[in-house]
């Protein structure tokens, strides 16, 4: 087989002086669903941006399909992205195009297909997410869950080898969430697409992921199958899996002494811009 879809080695990345990642290794196996979990603010979305070459790492190596995203030129990066589908948190549909045109957009941009072929392709993808009937609607007429399904249809329209989901379950009602979970699993099973799901919804991930990574404070604190994580005795893992408010991951954002802070209120405060 070819190189693994994703291979991250010794990743360092900092925003300003705040380190986001300090030595992260992640491997994604061909044809599997890999979950990257972690509390909010641990840079899961940043990880995806690093992975797709939108931002560059300070140190370390990120490979997509065996090619380092930091070293390929723009054309090479675009070639890699063409093999990658991405589902954004809010769908990121193009608001001035209909649902149909949104799904057709990447095809029109990259290939010259006869209109009839294009139409069949787009409608089959919309059918796969159950929204063929909504083809002529505008994105503003869709609910959040529907928008995300359209975005999913758009992500798979170019038949990618790798699908990346950025927080696919956030802000959805239980039914929509169930639909998305089912779609992720079906796409993986029927098309054999390698998938990365970044989320913090433990239960949903446990039901679909083959392998999970748990990120905290810039490091991988645990890795394994969902079952292994569920049985783990590590305090951080326990806290995250059970949803306790305080634990190794503190409830409070790092701050000084409360009393001192309150007393200082009297002075004019300076805000960072």
């Amino acid at each position: 087989m070819s190189a693994p879809p994703v291979c991250i080695r010794d990743l360092y990345y900092a925003v300003g002086t705040r380190p986001i990642f300090a030595g992260v290794d992640i491997d994604v196996a061909q044809g599997q669903i890999t979950a990257v979990m972690g509390p909010s603010g641990t840079g899961k979305t940043t990880l995806l941006r690093l992975l797709t070459g939108q931002v560059l790492a300070d140190r370390g190596r990120i490979e997509l399909f065996g090619e380092s995203v930091a070293e390929v030129d723009k054309a090479g990066l675009y070639a890699l992205r063409r093999r990658t589908g991405m589902l954004f948190q809010n769908g990121a549909l193009l608001t001035d195009l209909t649902v149909f045109e949104n799904v057709a957009f990447p095809v029109r941009a990259h290939a010259r297909l006869p209109e009839s072929v294009l139409r069949r392709l787009v409608l089959s993808k919309l059918e796969a997410v159950g929204l063929r009937g909504a083809a002529e609607l505008m994105p503003s007429q869709l609910s959040g869950g529907m928008a995300r399904r359209v975005a999913l249809a758009r992500a798979i329209v170019m038949d990618p080898d790798l699908l990346i989901y950025d927080e696919p379950f956030v802000g959805l009602d239980p039914i929509s969430m169930g639909v998305i979970v089912r779609l992720i699993r079906e796409l993986n099973e029927t098309l054999g697409v390698t998938s990365i799901v970044v989320s913090h919804d433990v239960e949903e991930l446990a039901s679909i992921a083959h392998y999970s990574y748990l990120l905290s404070e810039g490091r991988i604190v645990a890795a394994g199958t969902p079952d292994e994580l569920a049985r783990s005795e590590e305090p951080v893992v326990r806290q995250f899996m059970s949803g306790a408010a305080d634990g190794p991951v503190p409830f409070h954002f790092p701050a000084g002494d409360l009393a001192a802070d309150i007393l200082r209120r009297a002075e004019p405060r300076r805000r960072r811009s």
Binding site: R81, F88, A92, L94, T95, F105, P106, A109
Partner: peptide, 22 residues
Amino acid sequence: GLMRATDQLTAMEMMAVDPLRH
């Protein structure tokens, strides 16, 4: 600006479409 804020431009880049062009 709103296209940027709602990730539409990023989505284009992810579809290997240059938002400058389109």
